[in-house]
Structures are given as structure tokens and as C-alpha cells.
Design a binder for these strands. Structure first.
Lengths: 187, 187
DNA sequence: TTTATTATTTGCCAAATGACAAATGAAATG
DNA sequence: CATTTCATTTGTCATTTGGCAAATAATAAA
């Protein structure tokens, strides 16, 4: 739980009382591999800080399932679009390993926002920063070929590569699994 | 200027006095084609609502200039990363047509936030929504071939296609301009 | 262990794309 | 109007990648 608090403290100050309050709102949840954290068509009502495991955020595009990104330990997972608008989601979040999550409900976060001055600011900074990172990471991939996408993934997420099934990684990279398999072979 | 106000009102309420206050902070700025709104290496201190014209957000990746996205009329343009962190930017924003902008300085926005209750919320909603849109738009492109990327661009931005030079559009789509030229020929 | 299921690798071929260079077209300048 | 400059198109060719199907490997279940 210290990881979560440290994460928050990067973005603003919290005194011990406030930290305890935040901790009191956490609901520790375990997800089995392949279980869903949030589902398409439903309204997202939870945010999770991943204590252990990997999730993937996916959606369907013309009948094909696409992995938008992966989220691993010590990061927040949320269907931010549905969570912030309370509109049913077009994407879903699924565990690709067994996971342990620190879950906050929408209501808990609202209470924290009302009680802790500056909490809103922390949440907004985290939201903005993580979205900017996603844009920055995906954007250059468009101009890269399959091999370079994979090499850059290895460089940026060295610990993730061998924890993610090849088919899902291929889907994330926007290439076929055959291609990725061949690329791997050629080092 | 009504366009700007209508844009804001989508995200929260403002009374006439508050609207006038917002308007009073606007600095109308013209940019000539090819002029920069914000530059790499500098800290972004302004946000612009585009009254007329098109901007592009770019960056260099391994010596190659890449267009991350275009922003046209009735949208906000800002180097959000640099603006929110006040760290020198790695990207730049350039006019690709003559532009008329409604510019807010960082200080103006801060004053509005302090004076108008809920203004922060409006700004945050706009920021989050526009970043989510960018992720949602770019992400599926990874799995698409050049032709489909172009066709979808036409579908999503029908008015933009003929106002953007082919070379820049190709850069945005992540393909060579030769390829885009050939794709256009084959309808 | 054996069998069934799922994941990954490989082969083959056609299509798409990039790299490079040259030709053409369009716009700006004197 | 001629000239320069920049943008777009086109040609040629090598390479990459996808589509499909089959083979192999790894994992789970009986």
C-alpha cells in the first residue's frame, strides 16, 4: 500500500491523517487471469491501483479485438472515458495474469475529494499525465515498422515482454502474431 | 467568440458576468502560415481557441519530423504536456494556414480559476476529453493499412483533407507521401 | 500418462509499402 | 513572362507484411 501512497505523493502533499483516510477507502480485490475489471456496455464505477499483475485495455474494431494498452504494477487502471462521463463503455479491461488490486469506488473518490483539499488536483494530474503518456507512446509507432515497434516495446517495457502472451502483444503492436513470431526469431 | 463560449458551456455553467470575465481575458492573435504557436525547447505559457485556421502538433523522432495531429476551428490548441508541467517542450505547434486565435495566458486561466467556481472543472473536463479522443483516434490506426487510415481520416475529418498538404497528411498517417499519392489516385 | 486444448512457429505466396530518383505540376518571385 | 522553388505524381524495384494453412510446442484436463 506504500507504493500507492508514494505514487500519490508525487503529485501533491498529504498529511498522515489524509493518508490514513485514503487507505481506509481501499477495497483490496483479487482478479483471476482472464477475469474482467470493467466491461464493454457497462458504466465504469471503479478505479484500481495495481498491486500485482497485469491488465489490458481492449476494444472491438470491426469484429476484431484490439489491445489498446497494458497496465502493470504500481499504475492506475480505469476506463477513464466511461468513468468520467458515466456513459456505458466501448472498451473493457481484463486481467491477463492473476491480479491484486486496490480498488476505489467512484463514491469513495468523491468523498476524498470533498474531504481532502487538493485531492482533486492530484487526481487530475494523474489522469492528464497518464493520458499524455499514452498519446506519446502510441503516436510514434504509426511511422514505425513491425520490427521497430517490437524493439521499442522491449526497450520501454523490458519486464513486460515475457509476461504477455505473444498474441496479445501482437494485437497491441498492430501486427499479426505470425509476424511477431518471425521478428522474435530474427532476434 | 460565441463559439468559444458555447464550447465552454458544454462542460459547465457560466452566468453572463462570468462569460464577460472569460471574454475579457482573451487576446486575439493572428498567426501567419508556418508561424509557430509554441516551440520545442520552450515552456508553453498559452492556450489558444482556434477561431480560424488549422494548426499541427509535431515532434522530431530520430531526425524525422512527425505530425502528431491537426487542430482546426473551434478547438483548443495547447502543448498540454509543457503547459501543465511547465517543463520545456519536446513538441511544437505550427500554423499550416493563416490563423486567428483566441489566446489565454497561463496567468489569465489561473485568475479565472480563482474567480469562477467550477472553472477548473470545465478546464479539466476539456483536457481529459480531448486527450481521450486522441488516444481513441490514433489507437485503431495501428492495425490499419495505409488505405484504410486515409479513408477513415476522410470519414472523420471530411473538411480537413483538402486543406492539409499531402506531405503533412502522410506524416500524420504514418505513411510516405508517395504511398498517399498513389492511394488517392485509386480513389 | 494420455488426451484435448491452446499458443506459437513456420512455409508459401500475393499484396502493400518503402526507398530512391525522376518527371510533372503549381505557386511564388523577379 | 520567365525562372525559381516547392509540392505532388509516377516509375522501378526490393522488402515487409498479411493471409492462410499446417506443423509443432506448451499447457491444461481427464
Amino acid at each position: 500500500m506504500e507504493e500507492l501512497i508514494n505514487y500519490l505523493l508525487q503529485f501533491g502533499q498529504l498529511n498522515q491523517q489524509q493518508i490514513d483516510l485514503v487507505k481506509s477507502k481501499i477495497k483490496i480485490t483479487k482478479l483471476k487471469k482472464d477475469a474482467y475489471f470493467s466491461e464493454a456496455g457497462k458504466i465504469a464505477r471503479q478505479v484500481a491501483f495495481i498491486a500485482d499483475g497485469i491488465l489490458r485495455v481492449c476494444y472491438y474494431n470491426k469484429g476484431e479485438e484490439i489491445t489498446r494498452y497494458f497496465i502493470d504494477e504500481n499504475n492506475f487502471a480505469v476506463d477513464i472515458n466511461s468513468f468520467s462521463t458515466q456513459i456505458p463503455s466501448s472498451e473493457y479491461i481484463q486481467a491477463i495474469t492473476d491480479c491484486t488490486l486496490f480498488v476505489f469506488s467512484r463514491e469513495s473518490l468523491a468523498e476524498l475529494s470533498q474531504t481532502i483539499i487538493g485531492f482533486d488536483g492530484i487526481v487530475n494530474q494523474i489522469t492528464t499525465k497518464s493520458l499524455i503518456e499514452k498519446v506519446k507512446r502510441i503516436s510514434p509507432m504509426l511511422a514505425e515498422d513491425a520490427k521497430l515497434r517490437y524493439l521499442n516495446f522491449l526497450e520501454n517495457f523490458p519486464k513486460l515482454a515475457n509476461r504477455i502472451p505473444l498474441s496479445l502483444l501482437a494485437s497491441y503492436l498492430g501486427i499479426t502474431q505470425s509476424s511477431l513470431s518471425r521478428i522474435r526469431r530474427n532476434i
